[in-house]
Design a binder for these strands. Structure first.
Length: 504
RNA sequence: CGGGGUGUAGCGCAGCCUGGUAGCGCACCUGUUUUGGGAACAGGUGGUCGUAGGUUCAAAUCCUGCCACCCCGACCA
């Protein structure tokens, strides 16, 4: 590609509404363009990055034995009514009527569609397990979209669904997916952490989130400084040493749990974790009541107040930095921030049961499928990569995601010697199928350097005054800033060596 | 949905209070000189001032409704 022909332009100034760095840089680099709140067009540079990540996801999913399908983005309401999510999903679900008045939703996730597919095609336990995935545009009518691709309403997601005849088989695929996710994020050059997540009504230790660590992350993660325990704050626990006696200050709130008021008592320095509370009370609808605490109400009390003599005890608090690890009982917990880029989850028979999707087992009996689901936010992942890889000059793409690997810059377009050399290097790299872009614009050298840095192309090949004086090409790494002087005929080999190294 | 805020050229903003020729920087176009970190000079293009209505001789400016967008909270890959 030639810069002079590329459909893009870079910007010095950034629209005021771009808050986070990844959003600002993608706008400035001409990678994305907002069309409406939380809805973006991908420009060629941005799309190339997206496709790079997608390809990694596809390769690793295929390697794991999963099979790609493509489900529709528009889903008829009947399917969603069968799982009863049509009524329960809330207003994030975009509902649409066609010309006949028939109701559809724009799929935010595809459990219903895939469950119907499984039910249609899979008759016998002999056909199990199956893991099917798609990479597809989803829509969630988020209350407040923000942060560019990080939290859009329309977004590209890889979602996989597995079907099993036994929990053992589900466990196996769950572990395979965890390993696959590790490979995917490793290959993409992301620093990440797999953390225990809230597993909702299903329960058990069967929900993990893959978090890209970044200070700007929206999620709080508690990690142990001594062992490998890590959990989303929502799900994090801590080890506590039995009763605490003496003067303990407490705080009481009144919650309405399925219409019934209940007192919730914690140590005054602690904060309530409503997810834990909801689970402890097994409540559908839970909210903080306006009423003041009064005596005579049922009470539920945090574990750490076990010395006060209440009957109903549960872990109700958010753990804090400095708490003791629930896993090794040794280390202290520390809070870090993360961006959730993936989530793997054992669903069990939640959907197969409500939608009566069954297979015939060895005994000839109809059984609901056991299911797992596994998501990766594609756009969010590349935004997360930028959050992790940038400097004051712009994006620093890892080789695995970069839109182009090499940017060839001739510092003066007026000089035919430089142009000829740049063109010949360009042709040589193209001939070897190296993703190269030639900055042939009639612009100042400074602007080309700035753009190369902003866009984050890993390797810059500069044909300039050193070439005129000594016949040497400057080869610069975006990441380290290191410059190597090379003879023109050595450039290709040097790049090939670096690319090979980047693959390992 | 609650609270706060913004809509003026592609982007960043001024003008509004106190009504009277729509402006600045960047970007873009033309020409000349340039070319190692977002070049200089000269000339130019581009705006129904979010939208509908009202007040007025006259509205970007005052009033009312609506819309869009952004920030803070509860939802999520």
């Amino acid at each position: 590609m030639r810069f002079s022909q590329l459909f893009f332009s870079t910007f010095k100034e950034v629209p005021k509404d771009a808050e986070v760095l990844s959003h600002q840089l993608m706008l400035r680099a001409g990678m994305i363009r907002k069309v409406a709140a939380g809805i973006y067009s991908m420009m060629p540079l941005g799309l190339r990055v997206l496709r790079k990540f997608e390809a990694i996801v596809r390769e690793e999913m295929n390697r794991s034995g999963a099979q790609e399908v493509l489900m529709p983005s528009m889903i008829p309401s009947e399917l969603w009514k069968r799982s009863s999510r049509w009524d329960h999903y809330g207003r994030e679900l975009l509902r649409i009527k066609d010309r006949h008045g028939k109701e559809f939703c724009y799929g935010p996730t595809h459990e219903e569609v895939i469950t119907e597919l499984a039910n249609h095609y899979i008759k016998s336990y002999k056909q199990l397990p199956i893991n099917a995935y798609q990479i597809q545009t989803k829509f969630r009518d988020e209350i407040r979209p923000r942060f560019g691709l990080m939290r859009g309403r329309e977004f590209l997601m890889k979602d996989a669904y597995s079907f099993h005849a036994s929990w053992e088989s589900l466990d196996q695929t769950y572990r395979d997916m965890a390993a696959t996710y590790r490979r995917i994020f490793q290959r993409a050059g992301l620093k990440f952490k797999a953390v225990k997540a809230d597993s909702g009504a299903i329960g058990g230790d069967h929900s993990s989130e893959f978090m890209v660590t970044a200070d700007t992350g929206e999620d709080a993660i508690m990690e142990c400084l001594s062992c490998d325990y890590a959990a989303n704050l929502e799900a994090a626990e801590s080890h506590h040493k039995g009763q605490e006696m003496g003067d303990i200050e407490t705080k009481t709130w009144v919650y309405m749990a399925d219409q019934k008021p209940i007192s919730v008592i914690l140590k005054s320095e602690d904060t309530i974790n409503e997810i834990k509370l909801r689970k402890a009370l097994n409540a559908q609808v839970l909210y903080l009541s306006e009423t003041t605490p009064e005596t005579g109400l049922d009470a539920i009390v945090d574990l750490r107040l076990s010395g006060l003599g209440y009957e109903k005890l549960a872990d109700l608090r958010n753990v804090k930095s400095g708490d003791i690890c629930p896993h090794c009982h040794q280390g202290r917990l520390q809070e870090i921030r993360g961006i959730e880029v993936g989530h793997i989850f054992q669903l069990g028979d939640k959907y197969s049961h409500s939608m009566t999707a069954t297979y015939v087992d060895e005994a000839g009996q109809d059984k609901p499928f056991l299911m797992g689901c596994y998501g990766i936010g594609i756009g969010r992942s590349i935004a997360a990569s930028i959050e992790q890889n940038n400097d004051k000059n712009g994006i620093i793409w890892p080789v695995a995601l970069a839109p182009y690997l090499v940017d060839i810059i001739a510092t003066s377009t007026a000089d035919e010697t430089l142009n000829t050399c740049a063109e010949s290097l360009y042709g040589e790299l193209l001939g070897e199928n190296i993703e190269v872009i030639l900055d042939d614009r009639d612009e100042s050298a400074g602007l080309k350097f700035k753009d190369a840095d902003l866009i984050g192309i890993p390797f810059h090949v500069i044909v300039g005054k050193k070439f005129l004086s000594e016949g040497l090409i400057e080869f610069k790494s975006r990441q380290s800033g290191a410059v190597t002087m090379l003879k023109p005929e050595a450039v290709l080999g040097h790049i090939q060596t670096l690319l090979r190294a980047a693959k390992d």
